[in-house]
Design a protein around this nucleic acid. Structure first.
Lengths: 239, 239
DNA sequence: GGCAATGTGTGATATACATCACACCGAATC
DNA sequence: GATTCGGTGTGATGTATATCACACATTGCC
């Protein structure tokens, strides 16, 4: 019973402590047991590539633990990050359901535990378990939503500061800690990666962050972000 | 038996000539009859607003006939067009499935026939008919895909000409006619609307089209687009 | 310790494009 | 036939930001 990449593997979904309602594992017992039968649990190191855009879909990956970077790259090497997937998200779902190639690339940002399910098995599973199929539809809806949100951010904002402000605000609704002088958030991203999320250059991110710091709006130091003046951020996005 | 807005309404899905596999109406008989029971067929004039971003979801609209413009608008009035929906597409599906507000606005570009289904009825329908639920998942997958495609276009391209070229190429894979001097395509969009699709200004679209015309790449005259040099267009997108 | 490798800070320069401004054109409408 | 009105063509101008170019900081590694 090893623990590869420092992860404690949980093989059995029924007794798994990572379970949450947003997971497929939130399913009733009958479906969960069927899920259990077709899944392959595996651990991946940081930097592992789960699938690459253009590949035909092998199946879905359910993220139990860790973070996975979803991105797309242009022919000239420019990269755009679509999102950083959190535990509970299902990766490769749209490609698997529609049967068309993955349009995005998935790469683990840190050691991860994932459940893989082969496409055929998964489609059969969806056909036989209506509740699971509905869950799948809900997952897809959420993917659509976050995609639309990013389209808004890229297409409707006039400036890089605006997009950065929008990103910081998005982060602030997730997990964070309220401290005396603002909201503290953990971000494990480089300026380069932030640039790839908001579709700008690394230098612009650095400069804009410097500007935010000078204006006491928000301070990013190492991997801790402190938002000091949320109202001002909200003004920046034109809300 | 009137024909509002010049449309011949088809009330019965089973005998409907508009049916195609991509529709919900491609379902087997049992499900189709259930669908039939809960749907409301209606016709809308050009310019009718089906739903507005921010509204909580009333239900889905299945587009039988006509074109519907899906867009999103920023607080300062700038509009971005996500897509022009074609017959067979289901509108408002993600919001209805996830129960979150519509993030987009749907407006008919011409007289349309639509089937409306109330959210409660639709969710019950999905629960009871696994095949329909799978279809819904497939629809959502396709929505995701087209959203990702637009994200790529907005985030990874370096210039407006590149994005316009990409759009023209997208159009050329749809319905079109091969003529002596190129590929002829119908587009019922103004420069303004094209600008809103590729996220640029109206003037830039006009100028870029003028440039394409001068270089004998593509000519847009009225509502007919003729692509004269497809390879060159492909070079522009960096393919 | 020294030495890569990786990330961050900052200036100078060039340029694509938004924006403003206005002329023009065709199609409705009266 | 005149007149509005929505759409198109085109010039002038300003600005945000990409890009290049380095210096500096931090980390891990031999």
């Amino acid at each position: 019973m090893g623990s590869p990449y420092g992860l404690e593997l949980v093989e059995n979904c029924v007794i798994c402590k990572l379970r949450s309602d947003s997971f497929f594992c939130g399913l009733p017992k009958a479906s969960l047991e069927a899920f259990e039968k077709i899944k392959f649990t595996a651990a991946y190191p940081a930097g592992a590539v789960l699938f690459v855009e253009g590949q035909s879909p092998r199946g879905i990956y359910m993220l139990c633990k860790g973070r996975v970077k979803l991105s797309t790259t242009s022919s000239d090497g420019k990269t755009l990050i679509l999102k950083i997937a959190q535990p509970g998200e299902v990766l490769g779902l749209h490609a698997t359901v529609s049967g068309t190639p993955y349009e995005i690339t998935a790469e683990s940002g840190q050691p991860c535990q994932l459940n893989f399910i082969k496409r055929d098995d998964f489609l059969k599973f969806l056909q036989q378990h209506g509740d699971a199929c509905l869950k799948a539809a809900q997952h897809l809806s959420r993917d659509c939503q976050s995609a639309y949100q990013q389209i808004r951010s890229l297409g409707l904002s006039h400036s890089a500061p605006e997009r950065l402000a929008r990103l910081l605000l998005e982060w602030s609704v997730g997990e964070h800690a309220e401290v005396a002088d603002g909201t503290r958030i953990k971000v494990a991203l480089t300026h380069e990666e932030i640039a790839q999320i908001i579709g700008t250059s690394r230098e612009t991110v650095t400069r804009t962050l410097a500007d935010f710091r000078k204006k006491q709006i928000a301070i990013l130091k190492g991997s801790t972000l402190v938002i000091k003046n949320k109202p001002l951020l909200e003004r920046l996005v034109g809300a």
